[in-house]
């Protein structure tokens, strides 16, 4: 089975660890515990007839991606950049952050994820997506689990295509 390193990154409190826990353990907690450094876990995902072992690195949130130690990013085949759709501050620097990540890891697959969709109405969500300087690939809710499996399934398919 092929293994790939995937990193979950983004601003503070956008729900990276919640997405991580929902995906790996299928659980959610309202308590906010800040991630210190990094947490690593693994999950095997099935894409069509193939299996992929995803080694998921949940990196502590930073206001700007250039503040994250570079060594955490190295060797990553996939990046999940998460922002909180209910807090504009978390996607204010999205273009700068993604330019930085693309330059650092030009060959990796990047997924831009708008999390906490359960906190917004459809109208508010449309407004946020229209304001973004780039396309948001998927909107999720770690709380309800909406689109979380779909996010990793899409990413897994792209990673296997490139393998």
């Amino acid at each position: 089975m092929i293994s790939k390193k995937v990193i979950l990154t983004g601003n503070f409190g956008v729900g990276k660890t919640s997405l991580f826990n929902r995906f790996v353990y299928d659980r959610f907690s309202d308590k906010y515990l800040t991630t210190i450094g990094v947490k690593v876990n693994k999950k095997v995902i099935g894409v069509d007839d193939e299996e992929l072992s995803v080694l998921l690195w949940d990196i502590a949130g930073e206001v700007s991606q250039d503040k994250v130690p570079i060594s955490y990013f190295l060797g990553a085949a996939g990046i999940i950049y998460v922002f909180d759709m209910s807090r504009p501050l978390t996607f204010k620097e999205i273009k700068k952050d993604l330019d930085y990540l693309t330059e650092l890891l030009p060959d990796s697959v990047i997924k831009i994820v708008g999390n906490k969709k359960d906190l917004l109405t459809q109208e508010e969500m449309n407004h946020v997506l229209a304001e973004l300087p780039m396309e948001c690939n998927i909107t999720t809710s770690a709380k309800t689990g909406e689109n979380v499996e779909e996010l990793f399934s899409q990413l897994g398919r792209l990673l296997l295509e490139r393998a």
Partner: peptide
């Protein structure tokens, strides 16, 4: 889970060295 151990060891190593 040796994959997770390998990943976590790398994270610790990277953290200390950084």
């Amino acid at each position: 889970d040796r994959d997770v151990i390998a990943g976590m060891l790398t994270a610790i190593k990277s953290f200390v060295e950084d």
